[in-house]
């Protein structure tokens, strides 16, 4: 059981961003993708989630054996893909609790609704573990949240939705060390044999707290090197330049 990406090419407008990505994320593993700005890391996460700004020109993405490229964004989500956003959107006038409830209701058969008591019990327990104040249930989604609060809110949604595959797009950006620890704890608590992770980051720092099984380096729309956790340390020390292909 895994997400398997084969020779994936994608463009936005006339610009090709992904130039043949090959990647397998099995359940039970945490994969990290590192790379410089503009290497295509965030694009990869959006293409997996199904953002329609990007056109997939060739290649495939399969989840547990099924082609997902024909599925809409919301179908992919309901099938078990979760994207934690680098810049979560604000939804004025919609309380966080109502929003998360709507995301869960979207997974139920038409006409069925969540049990409110059980829902709040679950929500509060997960908020407590992320050290989120209860006031965040009534506040509008992400509106006026600090950077750290927004990222914690992403992890809260992830915990509530219990996805099969979690993609974290630069979740560590803009976080101070305390927030980083809390967010990492949240991610680690979701680690399971039943769940795969793809963690996109710019910095090795996050990988001190979330230990990856495999580290990939992305450069110019391709994965140019894969290795164990030690690869992240090597990048931290030597930078990316020595990995660039000779002809780049």
């Amino acid at each position: 059981m895994s997400i398997i990406i084969k020779d994936l090419h994608a463009k936005i407008g006339d610009t090709e961003i992904l130039k043949g990505v090959n990647l397998e994320i099995p359940k039970g593993e945490i994969h990290a993708i590192m790379g410089i700005n503009g290497s295509g890391k965030s694009t990869l996460s959006k293409v997996i989630a199904g953002h329609d700004d990007y056109e997939v020109t060739s290649g495939s993405i399969e989840m547990d054996g099924d082609d997902i490229l024909e599925l809409d964004v919301d179908e992919r989500s309901r099938n078990g893909i979760f994207l934690a956003f680098q810049y979560p959107m604000e939804i004025p006038g919609v309380s966080n609790a109502n929003f998360i409830r709507a995301t869960l209701n979207a997974r139920l058969p038409e006409g069925e609704e969540l049990d409110a008591v059980a829902y709040y019990k679950d929500l509060y327990a997960k908020m407590d573990s992320l050290e989120m104040d209860r006031k965040f249930t009534a506040r509008a989604v992400n509106e006026g949240f600090s950077g750290g609060e927004k990222k914690r809110n992403e992890i809260l949604q992830m915990a509530m939705l219990q996805p099969k595959y979690c993609i974290l797009d630069e979740t560590d950006s803009g976080l101070d060390i305390d927030a980083l620890k809390i967010v990492s704890k949240g991610v680690n608590s979701l680690r399971s044999e039943e769940r795969g992770f793809l963690i996109i980051t710019h910095y090795q720092r996050l990988l001190d707290y979330i230990k990856p099984d495999v580290v990939h380096v992305m450069y110019d729309g391709q994965i140019i090197k894969s290795g164990g956790p030690e690869l992240a340390l090597e990048l931290e020390e030597k930078g990316y330049d020595h990995l660039k292909p000779a002809n780049a």
Binding site: D72, D74, P88, M89, G93, V94, F99, A106, A140
Partner: peptide
């Protein structure tokens, strides 16, 4: 953003407009 949480585009628009 809302779609990536499993909400259909129609419901997403409604939820945002309602908010």
């Amino acid at each position: 953003y809302l779609q990536a949480r499993g909400i259909t585009p129609k419901n997403a628009r409604q939820l945002i407009a309602r908010g």
